[in-house]
Every structure is written in structure tokens, then in C-alpha cells.
Amino acid sequence: MDKFRLFPPEASTSAQQIDWIYFALVALTFLICIIVFVPIISFAIKYRRGSKADRSNPRVESVLIESGWTIVPLLIFIGLFGWGAVVYFHVENPPRDALQVIVVGKQWMWRLQHAEGKQEINELHVPVARAVELTMTSQDVIHSFFVPAFRLHQDVVPGKYTREWFRATRTGEYHIFCSQYCGTQHSAMIGRVVVMEPVDYARWLNTGQPMESIALAGERLFRERGCSGCHSVNSKFHAPLLEGTYRKPVPLETGEMVTVDERYVRDSILLPGKEIAKGYQNIMPSFAGTLSEEEIMQLIAYIKSIGNQTPSNESAPNEQR
């Protein structure tokens, strides 16, 4: 058995912030218990049946007392809410410079891929002191990616992307648990995060097979699966060009505006008829069932990577026609 512990290791910046709120709540709980239990015990002794205590004119109502024990907890609760909300907002919004990792949950394993292309199963190697953002989805049921040492927890939901981020503060190995019940082997869906010094991480990242980055893999898929046959300037079909569209608003046939983001790109690949861009026909076939979750995420990474380009003949793949 490992050494005796009351708290898990504190290994990320959010872990420190969350632990402070936790300690404040523990202190408040002790205080309230004293405020309630000390009177209960002393009244129980003083006013036990047959004792000689003075029982004349017992009070049974007081608006002043009632208001007091309503308003004071209310103010404390509003303060706690605010503190928790501020930290939550921080925990839920990744910084812009975060390293990107994609995560796909399935019964009963985690598949991860770093932006540089390195793939892992049930393990996540990260450098210390760098923000790391996980973009996650599931290919079957809902899972949840939980790293207690980072106080980090996010459901991984089929059909949509969720994200979480952390900045590790100390090197070491920490548990990854699936914490959303996902079937028979739920408790076997565990893994570990390995937090390394930046130099060790760089060395780790460059060992093994030469890698194709996620965006490059997406570009390759864009050609191999025929996307570029239509989505290019040389196409004989009328399809939107995707360069320079990511994170930009797009008008739809229905008159609505949507922002091109992960959700929109994903839906356009799997359910192309759902939101047709204005001025185009519903002619694209669905790729549902023919692309894996990783491949969809790689395609999105590619479209993201050309988000600052403008369409031109040179940038268009040229093996068409």
C-alpha cells in the first residue's frame, strides 16, 4: 500500500486554486458543525428531563433571529459561489498557447494523439509548466476524463467535442480514470499522465517512427478521400472553398449565420445537408461511418491550419481532372 494520504498530489495550477476553496469549505463545515452541535449537546444536558434548569417563558418565535440565520448564511453562500465561479471560468477556458492533444474515448480505452503526430494509448506524456489542451470525443458511450492530481474532470461525449486543459506543476506519474459509468470494464478504463521536464518531453516526442502532424494527416485525408475534388478552385462542382474560413462567420441558406468551428466542420462532414452555406446546393455525400473519430479531428485540424490562407491556384491540390 502506498503511503497514507488525505489529499491527492497537487500537480497543476488549477489543483492549487481548487484546493484553497476546498480548505475554506472544510473550515466552514467545521464552524457550522460547532455552531449547531455545541448548542444541541449543551441544551440536551441542561434541559434533560427532570433537570432544575429554568424553563419559564420559552420563546417559540422571533423574526429577528430567523432573519439573522437566513441572511448571514446567504451572504457567505454568495461569496462562495463567486469564488467557485471565478476559478471554474478559469478552468473551463484554455489559454491560447496551449499544446494540443486529441483524445478519443472508447469502451474501454483512451486513444490520444499529440499535435505533432505522436500517438499514445492510455498514457499521456506532457511537459511540466506548459499549458496542455485536450480536445475530446467518444466513439461510443459517454466517458469522462478524470485526473485527480490535476483536479481535472470533463465528460467525453459522443457526437460532440469537449475540452479541458491543465498546466502541470510537478513531474511524476498520475492516474487517469474514466469516471462516467461506461459499461462492464469501466473500472479498467484507467491510464496515467507522465509529466516530464521539457527536454525529456522533447526527446520523448522525437523517438520512434518519423511522425506526420495532425494537420498534415488531415491534408492527406483531404486529398485521399476526395474532399479536394470539389473544395478547390479548379473544381467543376460548385463547392465552398475552405481556406480562410475557420473561426469566420458564414451565412446559411436559411438566413442564419454560423461560425465555422469544430462543431460546424464535423456536422458538415457527417450531416452535410444540415446547414447549407448560402449559394450552394446540397450535393455533398455524408462521410458518416467511413471516417474514424481521429480522422475527422485530423480534417478539422487541417481546415484550422488553413484558416489564415486565401484560396489560390497554387495552394489547391493539383492532381484533380
Binding site: I18, I40, A85
Partner: peptide, 30 residues
């Protein structure tokens, strides 16, 4: 009844931990 008050107080106070957004991120489903 007296036992109820004691246990309910602890149960209620620990409910506040779960209502606090940031702390729930850690203890959710644990």
C-alpha cells in the same frame, strides 16, 4: 431525531462543496 440533525448538517454542508463550481470539477462522480 438528534442523529438526523447531526448527519443532515454534515450532508447539507458537503452539498455546498458540490454546488461550488470549481470544487465540483474535481469531486464530480467520485
Amino acid at each position: 431525531a438528534l442523529g438526523f440533525i447531526g448527519l443532515f448538517t454534515i450532508g447539507g454542508m458537503t452539498g455546498l462543496f458540490l454546488a461550488t463550481l470549481a470544487v465540483d470539477v474535481h469531486v464530480h462522480d467520485s
